[in-house]
């Protein structure tokens, strides 16, 4: 994508401005040789400079890049899958302490396998079996073998 460099510059710049605002909001309790604002301030400044430089580079790249063949890809479908995965992870994390590791993770694993596999290679029964068995193995390995407490949830 030709605009990638410019978009990146804008993202750097937005981050720099965000850091700058965050730095200004830091409340100091007392004065020291170097305040807690100093390093974030310096970093915000460098980030803005990096952002501006990247924007200049992005504009120059746009001008110099030759017109012509631009690859068409099926990126949209991929992006939907990524968004779906992120929603799944956040829902999974939210339910982890409520439903419990065993149930929540088995379902998540099953759904992840479906999401990651090509349609012609989906074997739902095998996915379900692997999901439950591997969750149980991981749970008991960590809980009994390694003394790690994992949320029990509804099975507690």
């Amino acid at each position: 994508m030709k605009k990638k460099e410019l978009i990146l510059g804008i993202i750097f710049l937005i981050c720099g401005v965000f850091f700058c605002i965050g730095t200004m909001k830091i409340k100091l309790h007392f004065q020291t040789e170097l305040s807690a604002k100093f390093i974030p301030g310096i970093l915000s400044f460098i980030c803005i400079v990096v952002g501006i430089s990247q924007c200049i580079h992005g504009v120059a790249y746009l001008r110099t890049s030759q017109q012509g063949f631009e690859k068409k890809d099926d990126g949209k479908q991929g992006l939907y899958s990524v968004l779906l995965l992120l929603v799944m992870i956040f829902v999974y994390t939210y339910l982890l302490s409520r439903v419990g590791f065993l149930v929540d993770s088995s379902i998540m694993l099953f759904l992840l396998m479906i999401l990651l596999s090509p349609e012609n290679q989906r074997n739902y029964l095998m996915f379900a079996a692997i999901s439950v068995v591997s969750t149980v193995i991981i749970y008991y390995t960590f809980r009994i073998g390694l003394d790690l407490m994992l949320p029990r949830g509804i099975l507690g």
């Binding site: 998540m108 992840l112 969750t135 991981i138 960590f142 790690l148 994992l150």
Partner: peptide
């Protein structure tokens, strides 16, 4: 072993690692 079997298990280990 296909990635679609391995990566979900890796994900579970990520969760355990972070939570633990």
């Amino acid at each position: 072993i296909p990635k679609y079997i391995l990566l979900p298990i890796v994900f579970l280990l990520c969760v355990v690692g972070a939570y633990g």
